[in-house]
Design a protein around this nucleic acid. Structure first.
Lengths: 262, 262
DNA sequence: CGGCATGTTGAGTGGATTCAAGGGTAGTGG
DNA sequence: CCACTACCCTTGAATCCACTCAACATGCCG
């Protein structure tokens, strides 16, 4: 699956939105330079010794090319994956072939949690762009967590956050209009870019309209129309996957579902 | 004030609209008579010694009357709750006061998981009928799990199942029609009754139409209409909250579209 | 350049919602 | 016991939002 392995300083083509360019990988000896923050939560507050030990579990990292599958439903679960770079979607397929995207994941996120406690993965994880992940052997992580209360707590947090995420999505899917869903989605994306040190006001989407639609429980035409409407209303500026946020307070009001509408 | 308590331990029930009534609790000396199975999963495969120790954590149980709140959003998290008897709903409130039911829980389920790793609960848990729960001090459970790999794995399973549940709901909310959602819901209920040793073909719902609607991301009138249509189609028989399943294969076919339900 | 995936927009349909009315049921108090 | 009341449930009619079908535009890559 992976096209690169732990060998240091491998170079790979990262088609960054807009300009096709080649980016050299930084030397992976340290993971302290993570852009993402969320999965990094595992390291928060650890004693130097424990942190070193945890970092050793992150030792290997592998590249996953756009559209490649990191893991598949009903394949054996043994490791979690921490996204070092890039973005992933997680997908569930129903028996009639219809697929629904149930998660959108960025650098710093931990993938594979639903496999914990069972031996099989419960969804597919697919790279939306050329990405890199660390494999985290769960047995070893579990063992370390057993000895390190702080790590254990951090692990609980990761899980808890994932649970809360699902709930937020349930509320979104259960009670928001198309426009409200899109506004919420855009704010989420913006926030994740901000956390990664990029602009929260101007960014490139990594998903197609259809993928966004699937994630938000809509059809692709509806997503397209919602983009257009938000544009017409002056809240954002859109051209294809390039998005500029013009009025984030108004977006926030829309997403909150409380402010203006109703 | 709760309506009963097995020991000087603190009672968790809170004052809420309702009539003051007292219900006698059975002797709590053994928890082996649990009807539910899901939360019981914690005990699966444990060595006798560990099982005894785990059971000692379950020592106290308390009654929670219909409509009473077990815990509330943003109140301190310290314990999980295992439902011994009865049913609960978990509810999220958005800022505009709109509330959405995000979970429906029966005997054997574990409540409060989303508080793990944080200090506050992330939703409300409310009894749908007079119920009884065990309080599981999380710190002690965590400590025991640290020493008992089997318990730890069981705990992971409970969490994992909760994660999967949320995903199934996302698929339901994101891609099923009203009738399909209701069919899925009814099959879930039937299955949980079956597991508890009751009839899976004839049962009483514990939720109002409005609560079902909230859970399924619909309006109460739509739920009512869907009930009527399923009735007219000969798949079920409904009168108020009394439901009789007449053609479960057809129900299953309807629900299959989403692939929900374990 | 042509081919294919992706994105936008229009017109018409349909399923779920809103608004509204009326019947049923359970719990309360006379 | 019955009437009363509050809540719950059902059903009808009209509306609206998202969906379907369809045509066309754009962009990317071989």
């Amino acid at each position: 699956m992976g096209f690169a392995s732990s060998s240091p300083a491998r170079v790979l083509a990262m088609p960054v939105p807009g300009r096709p360019k080649v980016v050299a990988l930084r030397n992976p000896r340290s993971i302290c330079d993570w852009g993402g923050v969320r999965g990094l939560g595992l390291r928060d507050g650890l004693e130097p010794g424990a942190m070193l030990e945890l970092d050793s579990l992150f030792g290997d990292h592998a590249g996953v090319r756009k559209r490649e599958v990191l893991y598949r439903t009903n394949t054996p679960f043994a490791t979690l994956y921490a996204i070092r770079l890039g973005t992933f979607k997680t997908v569930m397929l129903s028996e009639d072939g219809h697929e629904q995207i149930i998660g959108y994941h960025i650098a710093g996120d931990i993938l594979g949690l639903d496999g914990i406690g069972y031996d099989l993965h419960a969804c597919d994880a697919v790279a939306l762009e050329d990405s890199e992940v660390y494999a985290l052997p769960f047995a070893r992580l579990d063992d370390l967590a057993r000895r390190e209360p702080v790590l254990r707590r951090n692990l609980y947090r990761v899980v808890s956050r994932s649970l809360r995420n699902g709930r937020d999505m349930m509320v979104l899917l259960g009670s928001l209009s198309a426009e409200e869903r899109l506004a919420t989605f855009l704010l989420d994306i913006a926030e994740s870019f901000r956390r990664s040190g990029f602009s929260a006001h101007e960014f490139m989407l990594r998903m197609t309209r259809e993928e966004i639609a699937s994630y938000l429980g809509l059809k692709l035409e509806t997503v397209s129309r919602s983009f257009s409407r938000l544009h017409a209303e002056g809240l954002i500026q859109v051209q294809g996957r390039a998005v500029k946020v013009l009025d984030s307070p108004a977006l926030r009001r829309l997403a909150k579902h409380g402010g203006a509408t109703t």
